[in-house]
Write a protein that binds this DNA or RNA. Structure first.
Lengths: 106, 106
DNA sequence: CCGTTAGTTCGATTATATTCGAACTAACGG
DNA sequence: CCGTTAGTTCGAATATAATCGAACTAACGG
């Protein structure tokens, strides 16, 4: 049951975080995770091929936005809210709030 | 003295804003503008060729982050803080605060 | 009207991301 | 041990973005 590497909170870069969230699909994933955690990848696929979805999750992981824990056959994803809050206070919350009001897609 | 088109506050997209700020150079420009407004492009060039700088300013303009007013021979840039605050409350402030603490570059 | 200054636009090059199918892997269920 | 499920990795195709020089433009100063 091998696990993933996740960057340390102190190593997270703001530009990577913003970049990761600048993709509408990835932002949606983060939004859905914020609403319901933890979740496997499958229900977040939104009709895309698995390889694309896997790529986007990998971007989110590398940016430090999500943690993926392998639990049996599924990969459980959750937001690294604590780490993000300590490294970039208020940033994720403000972005999620804005994404929540400003039309689902943008 | 032709001026630029700037998108309306209501048309701004969160993903474009995050994308624009995900480039370290552009984030720096925004940070410097936040510290001192308005400013022409020249002092923000940071050694890059003018065409590159112009490109980055154009991205910031299209994302709605900055307004550029042509004043004589110089182009004066300022942050659209009001518009951004009304459309995406707290987002810019949180990002600027995080950029301020988290090492100048990221 | 000529030169200068400030910045844009164009076009080409290179770098980086996204996309997707196909083959793969790891864990579980029977 | 075989099939299934969940997701990754690979590789190639395509799309998007960054970079920079060169030519351009608009406004001012003299």
């Amino acid at each position: 049951m091998k696990q993933y590497d996740h960057p340390l909170a102190q190593d997270l870069q703001l530009s990577c975080l913003l970049y990761a969230l600048s993709d509408p699909f990835r932002l949606e994933v983060v939004r859905k995770l914020a609403a319901c955690q933890p979740q496997p990848c499958a229900p977040l696929q939104d009709g895309r091929p698995k390889s694309s979805v896997s790529h986007h999750f990998s971007v989110l992981r590398k940016a430090g936005l999500i943690r993926t824990d392998v639990v049996g056959v599924t990969h459980m994803n959750s937001l690294r809210e604590q780490d993000l809050q300590s490294r970039f206070p208020g940033v994720l919350a403000a972005i999620l709030a804005a994404a929540g009001t400003a039309g689902t897609q943008a």
